[in-house]
Design a protein around this nucleic acid. Structure first.
Lengths: 253, 253
DNA sequence: GGATTCGTCTCATAGCGTGGGATCATAGTG
DNA sequence: CACTATGATCCCACGCTATGAGACGAATCC
């Protein structure tokens, strides 16, 4: 540890013990688990006793342990999207500073995209705000999230419709949208050139979960009216780098 | 606390702090949260610092906190069914002793029922064992779990088929099964009279999650060849009582 | 600019968790 | 059935470590 950061050693050890017990699917003895993480039997025993008393663990018949009610309650408060959002915050701030445009992060809830992070210069000029929900089919982030949806869900989404035109360029034909989503998956990124608002264009890439799913996506947006147009695709490596960094910090244990 | 049980006070307090921070959706200050659970600011600050360093929490811009990667990893190991199983173990042992027959608990995974607990006298005479997966449409537990499935999933299950006859009494007609499931929901319990094996009958009731869903079901089984047949429905209150007790211990935080 | 309020850091104190070891409780084994 | 091995649980003196009041800087409000 860095000596400059005072932390509670005992807490870390207890949490490691919690992890070790839940990770153990083979029914090892408490003593064995304790030994595996280098803890005296007596200490481990007391920690587990406490966790059971606090209802974070439950005793199973046969001397084993399982998750307790309070852990379940915790589970209901947390979802992967929140973790990604937390991990993404600082990465996206840095990215926004580097490219000098608006950076956003969004997730899919049902048919709608939820915008969870918005940062960068000119952010107030854009109509979105964090917490806003928007249709998925017409934004870069939305198309990325749809593209990596499981086959069955993507099909259901396309079948549900209707897709209302917000500008002349909005894709409203389900068949065409299906083709576009296939392209997005093949290329690894999505674009939006005036499909929501006429003078807005953006570039979006997925954030991959290790299991291959895409729980979130990030995008760079620019109002086309304003000044120079830096080659959009030249920004792709930066955006992808950020996505990878976010995934790494969010999913590395 | 009961004085007879030695527990680590500090661990409990730190975990309470973790919960409090995650439960706070209003963006209160750390000081405010600490005060709410009666902890000095300095102590709370050190605990949170530790939890961040251990990656159970993550710093959000604006001085707030969100769940961290290790918490996500922890919670991925937990699902509601495990918690229910843990909570049910002792309750079902007691019930088995009281009624003197076989008690089981099962959950639905895809189309199959997984038997997770089996206890009581004569348990070895029955072919099931914990961990066994069985088709859902022909057992009492299975019918309960199907009956409370969300509309769409229940319909999908009924449409998928086929339903093979294991005995002369097995329900193989999807339309009839649909009617039976409606009855089960209306009555609040399911029976199986020789639909899997000729001489086996059972009575099953749901365990309700507070949100109304049914993540698990419990049943009493009896081999009909053997002796007297205590009025099956007279056991219903006992079974329901056990189900309610399990739900209470598993979902009360 | 004065007054809050919050986050962060320091440090002396004592309270508490620590862990070696003893004691039960359960299996396996000859 | 005694014998042994393994694990769970309990005990307790010791010393370390978490504690929390207080100080300080920073940000925000009036």
């Amino acid at each position: 540890m860095t000596p400059g950061t005072p932390t509670i050693a005992a807490l870390g050890r207890s949490l490691a013990m919690l992890e070790a017990i839940l990770a153990d699917r083979d029914g090892r003895s408490l003593t064995a688990i304790a030994q595996a993480i280098g803890l005296p039997r007596a200490t481990a025993h007391r920690q587990v006793t406490t966790l059971v008393a606090e209802r974070f663990l439950a005793r199973l018949p046969g001397g084993h342990f399982g998750p307790g009610p309070r852990l379940l309650a915790l589970l209901q408060m947390v979802d992967a999207k929140q973790v990604i959002t937390a991990a993404a915050a600082k990465v996206l701030h840095r990215l926004a500073g580097k490219v000098g445009s608006i950076v956003q992060l969004g997730t899919l809830e049902g048919d709608m995209v939820t915008y969870r992070i918005k940062t960068g210069r000119g952010a107030k000029a854009l109509f979105t705000r964090t917490g806003l929900q928007l249709e998925a089919y017409c934004s870069g982030i939305g198309k990325v999230l749809l593209a990596w949806l499981p086959e069955a869900e993507r099909r259901a989404y396309l079948a549900a419709g209707p897709f209302v035109a917000l500008t002349a360029r909005t894709i409203t034909d389900p068949a065409l949208l299906a083709v576009v989503l296939d392209q997005v998956r093949a290329r690894g990124y999505a674009t939006d050139e005036g499909e929501i608002v006429d003078d807005l264009e953006c570039l979006a890439v997925p954030i991959f979960h290790p299991d291959g799913s895409v729980p979130a996506a990030i995008s760079l947006s620019r109002l086309t009216g304003r000044g120079k147009t830096p080659a959009a695709e030249s920004l792709l490596p930066l955006l992808r780098g950020a996505a990878q960094e976010i995934a790494a910090t969010a999913f590395t244990f």
